[in-house]
Write a protein that binds this DNA or RNA. Structure first.
Lengths: 202, 202, 202, 202
DNA sequence: GATGAATGAGCTTTCATTCAT
DNA sequence: GATGAATGAAAGCTCATTCAT
């Protein structure tokens, strides 16, 4: 009962961080229903009850995690857009860059937010849907602007947007760190693809 | 024996079909670990133990399901390619068409095969990985042919292929039947996007 | 569902014999509660329902088995006694010989009757207790006769009897066929021990 | 928390002791496969899951129990031998005394260790076989010494040893406490039998 | 801030048994 | 004589959660 095999992978700062860190790892590996709250406590190197000190329930932990991740991603997109030149192609590139960078440097988080939305209880899902929609809207606005300005020529902006987002998101599934391709290079490739999808004509 | 209590949604033919039908529905809604074998039995209108008459375990049921789905999809792709003209663009269009049609008409199955691979036990995953790889290879070969023949001009065929596949696959997540867009029209849109991604120049 | 791994070990004559043969083997290996009726059917090479054609229940099968075994053993003892000279030592030797031979040549059956009595339902146990008691009585009578006649000098005939029976019965637990000792030799050893236990003075 | 519903037979100290106590009782009555973990929990006055707090599995509980029992018995034999005079007959008497006393005062434990070894999983069985062998060896050494010294005259020491052990062990099966025979008297009877079996000549 | 002990509900799976054919 | 399909009950075990300390 007292023995612990393996060393807790994540003995960082306080209890709270250890928990979220462990939860991110395990949730991304096994999914919400495949993960037990005991698994998380064990990986965090804490007792089961300690976990309940910080989070009132498993669902609450999931919601907090997804909220963090979504905020984080949204903020990065927002920042990237503010720094970008006022040109549809540049804005689109900025968004692609922010997304690709996030998918690569936050693979674990990316997979959680991609796969675990459906496990949010309705109340939590509704609360977070606004954020998600806002992120989608960033893309939609840019594509619309580009079409309106004549920079982009795609006939179906919604499908273009969805295709670009799907392509960028998929990176989190296949990317292996240390795979011999630099992040800037990867960003460049997906910018090029995105611009072809919206049929950008410089 | 003929009376059925409760509201079995799927009282089709024999026990086996009722089970796989129910399993497809529920697995696609709640995922492997979120679905209990009781849920499946209930929706199939059978007792819990009847399920074990047909499938030795929950995992076996999942593997059988995914195997079916993957075979089915692969076969459609294969057929579509054989019927297509011997031209990279036409072949790519054929593959996109087969995929989009599958994602729309078999949404449930598409989502299962997209999300539940990670819940296959290693032995099953390895057994099925061949099939999955074969399907990927169909796309890879076509893109490579197109680049070689000068029909396609994308600099990074792997990323082009992955982007196209991701875009098509995503359809199963957002498509709502009866959403006012015909299937042929949707196919056409994604063919156009795919050809732009590979930078096709007629 | 239809595949059967391993060949049924006991494909003898009719269904009934196949069943009892299989049941003896498995029951002696795993015990009543450790054995499922499916295991027996599988080893007998029959369907589960075939088993129910011959025996109305698992308990009935156990009772029939134990009854057979006990009858068989009792009969051998009885025969051995009838063939023995009318002398306490000779009678005791006859009983030891019958028992040792049974424990060696019917190891499986010996272990079943030794271990599975407690799993008989009360009704069955009571019915068979008579037989068991009769077998015990054969020993008791002989020891009593020997003491009365002055051939045996043990002060506590009941403990002597129990010790001899326990010693003979234990053979079924440790004896390994082909272990380099002949059956007649083994019989002789245990006759000698038994006669020492009752303090026989020729 | 202090109120207890139902009639927990064994509400002793902590959870762990309540569990092992209840397990001993029920296992000795119904055997490993005839006992459900729910039965044990119920008799211990605990919930089913509390049992799993203390023991990771039913098998683990069995192994822990048998290990305890075997250690306990071995220790008593060892102590008895150390206190005995340095004479084969006295040593044999000491071992018989220790064994008879154990079989009478720890009937429940004796029957468990006699009947449930076969239900140990191979890994556990192998681990404990050493202990069991050591206990057997105590007997074997004494008989060998007695034969070597000329105190015992039995021609087949292994069979003599097995017979004595079997006779002593059997006591746990038939002995009824309060049956009108004192423990020292019983010990004396079995010492006498044992000495006759090894053909002791003072 | 944190723990050890406990619980009730639920999980996957296996059981003995039944019944129409 | 025998089978395939099905069932309700119960098995071993894990779950998220609670609570006194």
């Amino acid at each position: 009962m007292t023995e612990r095999r393996g060393a807790p992978t994540i003995p960082r700062g306080g209890g709270r961080d250890a928990i979220t860190g462990a939860a991110r790892e395990i949730l991304s590996e096994r999914g919400y229903h495949g993960t037990s709250i005991r698994d998380i406590a064990k990986r965090a190197g804490l007792s089961l009850s300690a976990l309940y000190y910080w989070h009132p329930s498993k669902q609450h932990l999931l919601a907090a995690l997804i909220e963090d991740i979504t905020h984080d991603y949204f903020q990065r997109c927002d920042l990237a857009l503010r720094e970008a030149a006022d040109d549809p192609a540049e804005k689109l590139r900025a968004l692609v860059r922010a997304t690709v960078e996030y998918r690569v440097s936050r693979r674990v988080e990316s997979n959680i937010s991609a796969l675990e939305w459906r496990n949010l209880e309705p109340a939590n899902r509704e609360r977070l849907d606004g954020l998600r929609h806002a992120a989608t809207q960033l893309w939609a606005d840019i594509v619309a602007d580009g079409v309106a300005s004549g920079d982009f020529h795609c006939a179906h902006p919604d499908d273009a947007r969805r295709s670009i987002i799907a392509a960028c998101n998929a990176i989190a599934q296949w990317y292996e760190p240390g795979g011999g391709i630099t992040l800037p290079e990867l960003v460049e490739r997906y910018c090029a693809i995105a611009l072809r999808v919206v049929d950008h004509r410089g």
